[in-house]
Amino acid sequence: MSMTGAQGRIGYEGQEKDNPEPPPDPNTGSDATDAAPTEQPASWFLRAREMNLGLKLAPVAIALLGLGLFLYYRSLGLGTTAPSSQTSALEWSTKLWPQLTQHLTIAFWSTIIVVVIAIPLGIALTREPLRRYGPAFVSTANAGQALPAYGLLIIFLTLMGQGLTTVVVALAVYALLPVLRNTMVGLDGVDRGIIEAGRGMGMTRGQVLTRIELPLAVPVILAGIRVAMILNIGMATLAFLIGGGGLGVTISVGLKLQQNEVLLVGSTLVAIVALSFDWVGAVAEKYLRPRGV
């Protein structure tokens, strides 16, 4: 999957006016002659999206996947019939659970760092004095993402040594682009006429930013954060390479020992985490979208 394509699409989606609310009652309008917004006949795909089918079905799918994993895990006969290497690799309280929390810690903090850096940076780069540096920053962030994640981890390993912090920083750099770009796209996407009207009524630049531009850019920015979060959860599986832990440890053990069962449990767990957070992101996008947009 091309990330660029996907983010481009997400960026666009955020600005699109989907979920149209019912059109105004034609009888109450005093402009009987000018056309009120009409509803387009929707394809099954649009209808499904309008009903938020994906949003409703995703938790069911995730729960089924979780249940399947649970049953599979039980059926392995860990501690009884399973080989001891498998038992030790898949032990919940000493292996899987600590790795899971580590994994989430890495993803959480790297996403937080991305948000804390990229959103203010995106705001600054869309303000007048810094505007012209915007393209340069986006190119740099692009390069950050174009580097192989593996390579990026190694670079940060040489710079900062082993450990969780290194992983968090490396992932933050890696996932900076989508949030930075979406913040800029979202802010730039606000209709100039709306900003002009706000300024013309005597709102200060700060008021226009906080009361108009940011609320209107929220859907696009959230889409960027969601992408960054999912990138970070995926990339956190590589954290084990430089001693950062995470569920990548289990996957790597499975590969090394050629234990498909271990491999399967580890990767399915990562998939469940990624899907769950993607769903949370989708819900947030839906409910944090400003009303009326």
Binding site: G193, I195, E196, A197, G200, M201, G202, L216, P290
Partner: peptide, 22 residues
């Protein structure tokens, strides 16, 4: 200038209503 503009009504062709506000 901001305070000045609050004393002056301003209507533009694009209208520029804030879409996220009633």
């Amino acid at each position: 200038a901001d305070k000045l503009r609050r004393r002056i009504g301003y209507v533009i062709q694009q209208i520029g209503l804030f879409p996220h506000q009633t």
